[in-house]
Design a protein around this nucleic acid. Structure first.
Lengths: 156, 156
DNA sequence: GTAATTGGTTTCATATTAAAACTGGCCCGA
DNA sequence: TCGGGCCAGTTTTAATATGAAACCAATTAC
């Protein structure tokens, strides 16, 4: 089959991002991190993922700078996995994905969780891209601009 | 190995979303759609994905309602794959992923494409979740609220 | 000091991915 | 209206990734 196609060196930022988090577990691990999970065993139990897969994903996420390893905060000799700044910046991705899922992946009448503000308890409004003036931006109104030294192939 | 763990019936919307688009190709296909690609051969050429994989992904995306199949608009007898409303609603996900990638996955000084407004040409500001008052919402200020008939297991 | 917990690693079977060859309709020009 | 070339897949075959469960060493609890 030849090695899985790597997208690391693609010019498109979406492709590069998917090279890192484009699988079914990585973003769930990140989600867990946002919920406060830090320990191997807790990820394993909460996600129900196989341990060896969890090991490889955690390693990959550390490798690419989304997570960092640090000594446990509870005084034990174990270590913890925590979000880096880069990892925290995945928040919009997680929220967008969650809101899309909430909207489209439940049967009519099927209950599901909601993202709310911790203080007010009010539902977090659906996140939308906005233009420089703050107006909602529709897909058709956005375009990808390539960089200066015009690439000879579509860069996307 | 036992079949790949399905996340379709997970209670978490993020898990459900990843069941559908949690792989390295699906979102790239969706990205292509936003760029206007509609034909099998064009997806294949632009993405460089193996044809059989493309077939299975297109089928899955149609199956879950992200894409729809319709007769070709150019009069030929072939068919086209186009985004449904549900698929178009992935726009924020794509934008969030792109902006994260632009920010974190390029070496210092390495050039990359930018998402800009089609009319003004101005860069699309980084998208952030906002609370009901329109103020930026930090990860720590958001929480997941479970639904009414309190589930007996963590629902997330 | 001993047993249980934690955080992995190893092993093995199966599923998924990939490349390339193959197939069978469509379309075009002569 | 024939033949060759496109288009959109399917099949075949091989390699890699995933998952479950067993295994293991260090750490912690008792």
């Amino acid at each position: 089959m030849a090695r899985r196609k790597s997208l690391k060196d693609e010019l498109c930022p979406i492709a590069r991002a998917l090279d890192v988090i484009g699988d079914r577990w990585s973003l769930l691990i990140v989600r867990e991190c946002f919920e406060g999970t830090r320990r191997f065993g807790d990820f394993q139990r909460d996600l129900g993922v196989a341990r060896n897969i969890l090991t490889s994903r955690l390693y990959a996420l550390v490798e690419c700078g989304v997570l960092a390893v640090q000594p446990a905060s509870d005084g034990s000799a174990w270590q913890e996995y925590v979000l880096t700044r880069q990892g925290e910046n995945l928040f919009p991705v997680i929220v967008a994905l969650r809101q899309w899922g909430e909207r489209h992946l439940y049967a009519a009448g099927e209950k599901h969780s909601r993202l709310v503000c911790a203080d007010s308890g009010r539902i977090v409004p659906v996140m939308v891209p906005r233009n420089a003036s703050g107006l909602p931006l529709k897909p058709a109104d956005a375009m990808v601009r390539q960089r200066p030294p015009a690439p000879r192939k579509a860069t996307r």
